[in-house]
Each structure stands twice: as C-alpha cells, then as structure tokens.
Design a protein around this nucleic acid. Structure first.
Lengths: 167, 167
DNA sequence: GTTGGAATGTCAACAACACTGACGTATTCT
DNA sequence: AGAATACGTCAGTGTTGTTGACATTCCAAC
C-alpha cells in the first residue's frame, strides 16, 4: 500500500476527519431543507420553486438569464417552474423596456408571503444551529463553505452578499 | 458571558447573516457534489448510487434495513439503485447467516475502486477548503453542521463517527 | 431597409429518482 | 398455527433535470 509515505498516523487521522466532514454535509443538508420541504409539499411545490422564489426576492426585477446563471439549470427546467409560479400568481413577469426579449421577474404579495414563510422556517433552523455552536463556529462554517464553492458559484455568492457591483 | 457585538445589534443584521448562511449552504453543496457527479455521470450513475456505495463501504456487511434508515428513502427507491450496483458487479448481497431474511451488503473490488475514486475527488475538495479556511474554521464548520441535523439523523452521524454512546 | 445571426424565452418529449400502494415470499417470533 | 419482520417487485405518479425544435426580438452587415 504505502510506497513512499513513511508517515502513518497523521494521514489516517486526516482521512477520518475528511470522511466525517463529508457525512456531516450529507446529514446536515437534509436537516437544512427539511422544514421548507414540508411547507412546499403542502402547496404542491418543490425545492426548485423555493430556489426561484428566493433569488427573485433577493434581486427583484431580475431577468430569466440572470436567474439561469445563478441556479445552474437549463432554461427549459427553470421555465417549467416559473410558469407554475406565474400561473399561480406568485411571480409576475414583465416584458423588458429596453430589450423586449427579456422578462423581468418580481414576487407578488402572495409570492412574498410564501417566500417569507419558507425563509422564516429555514432561518430558524440556521439561527438555532449558530446559537448552539457559537459565533466563532458560525464564522468558521461560512469560511469553509465559501472555500468549498466553485469559483463560478462564489462569484454569485459574493456579488449577492456584498454589493451589486460588476466583476 | 460578554456578547460579540453588544446587545444593540439590530435584527436586520442578524437576518442578513442568516440569509448569507443559507446561500452559502446552497452554493457550497453544489461544489461539494460537483466532482463526484462528473465521475458518476461517466458511468451512468447518480448521487443515489454514490450514497449507497459510501455507506456500504463505511459499514461492510450492513443490511438493507439499516441502509434504508440511514439514507431516508423508500425501499423501492433504494432497491432500484442496489439492483443496478449488484448487476454491474459493484456490490455483493449475501443471505444472512443468523437471520436468513436479511441481506448483507459488501463492495466488490470493482465497487471499492469506484468508491475510492469518488472519495478521493470529494476529499480533495474538502481538504482544500479546510486548508484555506484553517483548522479553527474546520471545527466550527463541523459544529454548526452537527447542530443543523435532525435528531434522528444526528444519531446516525454520531454512531458512525464516534461510538454508540447515547445522550 | 432588408436580411441573417445571436440572444431570449417557450413548447414537447424523455430520463433519473423520489414517492405511494399493493402484493408475494421466505423466515422468525409468539 | 398465526402474526410479524425483512426483502423484493409491479404499477402508477410527481418533481426536476436533460435535449431538440421553434418563435420572437435585437443588432449589425450589406
């Protein structure tokens, strides 16, 4: 097995820590989505609808292409979700003024209400976790997640978090 | 216990931090699964196969019911995945000795090889993130994830990681 | 000003993977 | 013997992802 290693204990310990981190991500993500999932299921929606509502709420008036870039799915996939949300009166689609090919998206009052319900449930879970683990741990949590993203995704994250400035 | 920001920290700041944490989880989870997903796609498998391989590797000789409990899916769903892995010669199913109703699952050499390839890719990503963020952050990361799990899921996590000691 | 290509968004069909419900079989427990 | 458990399977459904084909709009070259 070991061809040119020489050291033994530290590497095995390292691997064990990584495996634990991986499983923590797996189990925690389930908890992370559990509460919103329950609310969504009641209304006949799924996680894709949640993601769309979240990012439209985050960037009102955004267009489909921008949303596509953030969500990383095909436009056909996003379109199905948006169509349902628009038909149900949660999202409003306006033809662009400058460029009539674009559609600008906003939440209606009804959409804002559902988004708030989903956020509230999810935030409660995260808030509780932060409280249990402490503020120092919360900073470490964010730092590791930030480092784990693809460069492409991190750009969206930073742009949304910090300021709307271009790259 | 002195507070981190003082007691007049506005709630808006709190909400902003939570929203950032939620988006960090969303974007980071994409990165977390990106590398294994590529390998899996080449072989015609998906994340469900990865999860099965991981936990069979983690607990060799485990039975179907235990896997069902850990993965939190229906037996029909797991069965589809398991059938494919067995037919392709990655997983071996043995009739239980003590209880012949049970099926004990193990990875074949071929199965171990794929699992190792998937782990290696995923561990590299996590290792890099830990290195960038630092060991203190890595501890915080795990603490927050641990606090974010459902009690039911945390039981599996602890049992796998530490020892079967209850709370 | 017309035309052709790029960009934007929509419709249709299909695959992966989850779910529920019902049933069958072998085995174990009471 | 009868109930309960463990596992597998068939049939049907829903969400969410994929490709392919197509309509509309914009822009730039001719």
């Amino acid at each position: 097995m070991e061809e040119f290693t020489g050291q033994n204990a530290p590497e095995a310990q390292d691997e064990e820590a990584l495996r634990r981190g991986v499983e923590a991500m797996f189990f925690a993500y389930r908890g992370f989505t559990a509460d919103p999932d329950r609310i969504l299921a009641e209304q006949g929606y799924g996680r894709a609808h949640h993601r769309a509502l979240h990012f439209i709420n985050r960037s009102p008036g955004t267009n489909v292409n921008n949303l596509l870039d953030i969500l990383g799915v095909t436009k056909q996939s996003l379109n199905r979700v948006l169509r349902a949300l628009i038909e149900d009166g949660l999202v409003e689609s306006r033809v662009g003024e400058r460029d009539k090919r674009e559609r600008h998206l906003d939440l209606t009052e009804k959409g804002q209400a559902l988004e708030a319900a989903l956020s509230t449930a999810q935030h409660a879970r995260v808030r509780e976790a932060y409280k249990k683990a402490g503020p120092e741990a919360a900073r470490g949590f964010e730092a590791v997640l930030d480092a784990m993203m693809d460069r492409e995704l991190r750009r969206h994250f930073r742009r949304l978090s910090d300021e709307p400035g271009d790259v």
